[in-house]
Write a protein that binds this DNA or RNA. Structure first.
Ligand SMILES: [Mn+2]
Ligand SMILES: [Mn+2]
Ligand SMILES: [Zn+2]
Ligand SMILES: [Zn+2]
Lengths: 139, 139
DNA sequence: ATTAAGAATGCAACTTTGTTGCAAAAGTAT
DNA sequence: ATACTTTTGCAACAAAGTTGCATTCTTAAT
């Protein structure tokens, strides 16, 4: 096949450009969530920093990637599942895990975020859960 | 009384300085979590930016404040409860809420984070939950 | 109250991160 | 192949964060 990246772009009605394909490939090859910086390290020699910013923004809006909150000012991004890509909006209701040992952040796709009861008057739109600890590779 | 801020500093074995008192006062008066920038806006004329960075770092380490993850590269800080201050490490297992309308982030101190089952091999140390939506003031 | 030791602050210089406008280049549809 | 639209790179900038060091402030002991 070898055109998965291109397919994703076409399905999202995005024009197929070298930088977008490259950045998608980086995500497809990654086993953990990536910060802007990680991507820049991998391809700043080929593509401009600004292009990376704009590409990530575009991917976010199209439901190709989702972002993961952090307390270190390093928002990380990971590929979405099919549902987000096809519907064009996000359904990423899984837990994220940040390993204190290796520093990797991963999507726990099989772990759903449990329900939570908000006080009267609050309306929930999105929910995010990030767990810190030791991952299964580092334990 | 009027010495709550000073008491917190003393209980944490921190020397009592004007900037620390001021920053604590800002937190004590706030009804929502504050980013570095918010604090800077309120007192950059009196205290150096670097001092604010270092003070927040110190307060974090002493369990005086905790930080709240975000996807907008604006980590926010809020006062901890007694338990963190007295023990010197964090027990902030409550849910945080970010209002899409007013932009405020608040601690829902009464809403505990529900338990979550991690896959085999993962060890949990900390857990963070942030909910987005409309707060009770904006609804 | 003085003083000495240690801690915190301010400043300068710097690095990193993120934003914007615009011209050139590349992609898409005809 | 052409015209139209979108994306990219560049430059210039603004904002955010870091570090070393001299000065000032706190604290605790005299
Ligand atoms: Mn994820
Ligand atoms: Mn909180
Ligand atoms: Zn790990
Ligand atoms: Zn609100």
């Amino acid at each position: 096949m070898k055109k998965q990246g291109e397919d994703i772009l076409k399905n999202s009605a995005l024009s197929v450009t070298a930088s977008r394909k490259r950045i998608l490939d980086i995500f497809l090859a990654a086993d953990n969530a990536l910060a802007h910086q990680d991507i820049e390290t991998k391809c700043a020699d080929q593509y401009d920093r600004v292009t990376i910013y704009r590409t990530l923004q575009t991917f976010l809006e199209k439901g190709i990637i989702h972002n993961i909150p952090s307390t270190d000012n390093m928002v990380r991004y990971a590929l979405c599942n099919e549902a987000c890509i096809t519907t064009g909006h996000h359904h990423d209701n899984h837990v994220h895990f940040r390993c204190d040992a290796c520093g990797k952040t991963v999507c726990l796709d099989d772990v759903n975020i449990p329900a939570v009861n908000l006080p009267r008057g609050y309306t929930m739109k999105e929910i995010n859960m990030v767990v810190n600890g030791i991952c299964k590779s580092c334990k």
